[in-house]
């Protein structure tokens, strides 16, 4: 097991290098130089001043040198300084990351809790009304434009019925609340965004679960189990489900980038100060160091997600042993 993990981590390092190269190129195909951001407001800034700033940021060096320098700093987990407010990029990302990850985590849990039963049910009752109904239901979630659904929910649940807060993650009086109230308050704020995020991701897991389950149910060992006269319930839930769940673990890892990517939309609409919004803001302001930082960290999170998924897969599945 240890050897397997070690091997994977070496592989990851190679992937990481690739990630940084792609990110770096993406940023540098864009027209314009980041120094424009510094200088654009000021009619008094001369070309010399721009060049001085460019030099300050090392932008006057050839690309590959810039990349290597960036990489050296990256090795020390230093993503540089934000052009926008001169704060360390790492600090900006770290203050935004927890809330995004919290929402992601909750929505993954919700997706699993709802998606797996739906998928299993659909597979067991393949072709039934239930199956078709659930197919349409999960696709509805996928097909609704996130911001459209969010606005409709906010309008009805937040404004008209006043059941839940509309946006943000905390009430304005949050600091004055007791601990218990704080938890309630935050949960209330998170219900809508988590729901929106989970509803959109339901289709992926439940459809995958359904086909995985259908696949397992066709296997010989299930037929054997049935032939041996095991109760249908035991066949389904003890034998089939266990095996059908395995591949779902890997798909979980793959769904991380989608969730992170989607965060731009619901963080904007729900005014959540997370990574998605940080990314959008820095893209709009051409804050290159932050753009680089978020892209790389997003990719690293995905890598970690995949690694975790693979390790747990290997841990659960007796067929996969240390390669």
């Amino acid at each position: 097991m240890g050897k397997y993990v070690f091997k994977r981590i070496i592989g990851l390092a190679a992937l990481l290098l690739g990630i940084t190269i792609i990110t770096f190129s993406v940023i540098h195909i864009a027209p314009g130089r980041p120094t424009d951001l510094e200088a654009q407001f000021n009619p008094k800034v001369s070309m010399e001043a721009r060049e001085r700033i460019a030099h300050l940021y090392g932008l006057d060096k050839p690309l590959h040198i810039q990349y290597i320098e960036w990489l050296k700093r990256f090795a020390r987990l230093d993503f540089g300084i934000s052009f926008m407010d001169s704060r360390p990029v790492m600090q900006k990302i770290l203050e935004r990351m927890p809330i995004t990850l919290t929402i992601e985590l909750f929505s993954i849990i919700l997706i699993l809790l709802i998606g797996i039963p739906i998928g299993v049910g659909s597979a067991v009752k393949e072709g039934s009304f239930y199956d078709r109904f659930m197919t349409v239901f999960v696709f509805i979630g996928f097909a609704m434009p996130t911001f459209w659904l969010s606005l409709i929910l906010m309008d009805f649940i937040g404004v008209r019925w006043g059941i839940l807060p509309i946006s943000g993650i905390k009430s304005l009086e949050f600091e004055k609340f007791g601990n218990f109230e704080k938890i309630i308050d935050m949960s209330k704020h998170l219900i809508l965004p988590v729901f929106v995020s989970a509803f959109g991701g339901l289709a992926g897991i439940s459809r995958y679960m359904r086909s995985s389950m259908l696949n397992v149910l066709k296997q010989d060992y299930i037929r054997t189990a049935r032939a041996k006269g095991l109760r249908e319930k035991d066949v389904l839930y003890k034998h089939a489900l266990k095996n059908a769940l395995l591949p779902v673990v890997t798909i979980l890892g793959l769904s991380v980038p989608g969730l992170i990517g989607g965060s731009v939309i619901f963080e904007s609409i729900f005014s959540i100060p997370g990574m998605g919004r940080l990314f959008y803001e820095s893209v709009m302001a051409r804050d290159y160091p932050v753009i680089m930082g978020v892209l790389v960290i997003g990719a690293v999170l995905t890598l970690l997600g995949n690694l975790l998924a693979d390790i747990s897969y290997a841990a659960v599945d007796p067929r996969i042993k240390l390669e």
Partner: peptide, 20 residues
């Protein structure tokens, strides 16, 4: 004095309607 950042104009308007 609280300066709330609500990046989307539609959300901002909903918050106004909710008197938040």
């Amino acid at each position: 004095y609280i300066y709330r950042v609500i990046p989307d104009t539609a959300t901002l308007f909903l918050e106004l309607r909710a008197q938040a």
